[in-house]
Nucleic acid binder design. Structure first.
Lengths: 147, 147
DNA sequence: GATGATTATGCAATATAGTTGCATCAATGA
DNA sequence: TCATTGATGCAACTATATTGCATAATCATC
């Protein structure tokens, strides 16, 4: 767990019951340095506690709606989930390897975005700006040069 | 068709045979002001020419690999496809309405990104930076205020 | 042209990711 | 204790995408 995050508190502040399953989901996601898919969360929890696949989907949905988690579009088919930005976690872009599919978090200040123009001119409501960097990851580059 | 794009040329320059199906796919996508899903491309072409669903998927894949099209992560489940940026089409962010799922193209200069830091420090290869703005579109805002 | 190789397409089956409907269980308040 | 609400489980289902293999079209060579 990150020193600043008490998962129980996070859930309560967001207005959702801190059930055992929800705490599990949050702990698994918070304990990883990269966003995870629903299937990964399910498999990880399932190694120690029985839980239903659908329950995982429902909890992920709920926590995204309550802004505890954020849903990250990964380039691939499955959505990834990470802790939502908050006081202690700055929003940051994600990298997605188009060869192996790995999704990793980038440093919050690796990119800077100026969205003034958007906010001034866009007629809808802007909730979130997601940045996805696509390319070939370090490992895949290495492998590619090995033949 | 956009004045600057001859689809036949686009395909030839990209090194792919300009078959009738490929031209169809490209024309449908190029003729729309917002990126389309595979299903939408399939349905649109299918109104006039018989084509197989799988063929559409394969053509989309091929054209993305050859950088004629770009795959846009839409927040929702289905990928969207638009013309890839080129001399005449600046890369631009996309907006995705979290209520109705609509995906629309934003003005290229509604956002400006500084990626120097990323390029200087990231150990992998960066091919593309995708920006997805999430929120509520104008129409949905209007509907929401109507009750 | 005819012939063989390569590429493109079609079709059926399958895989993957996510969703729905309904039953049950647990917690909460009257 | 009972009724109500919310959380979870389970099975079936939907949407999206992919695979394997057969056929058709195209291209290069004779």
């Amino acid at each position: 767990m990150c020193a600043h995050c008490n998962y129980q508190n996070l859930l309560e502040k967001a207005g959702v019951e801190p059930t055992a399953n929800r705490l599990q989901v949050l702990a698994v996601i918070g304990g990883n340095d990269a966003p995870l898919t629903a299937a990964e969360v399910f498999a990880t929890i399932g190694r120690f506690h029985p839980i239903n696949r659908v329950t995982v989907y429902r909890i992920l949905d709920l926590l995204v709606r309550h802004r505890v988690l954020e849903r990250i579009s990964s380039g691939g088919r499955a959505a990834h989930f990470g802790l939502a930005p908050n006081k202690y976690h700055a929003p940051h872009p994600h990298f997605c390897c188009s060869r192996c599919g790995a999704v990793i978090c980038l440093n919050p200040d690796s990119l800077s975005i100026d969205a003034d123009n958007l906010h001034k001119t866009f007629a809808g409501e802007v909730d979130r700006i997601e940045v996805l960097v696509e390319g070939i990851c370090r490992n895949c580059l290495k492998q590619r040069s090995n033949h």
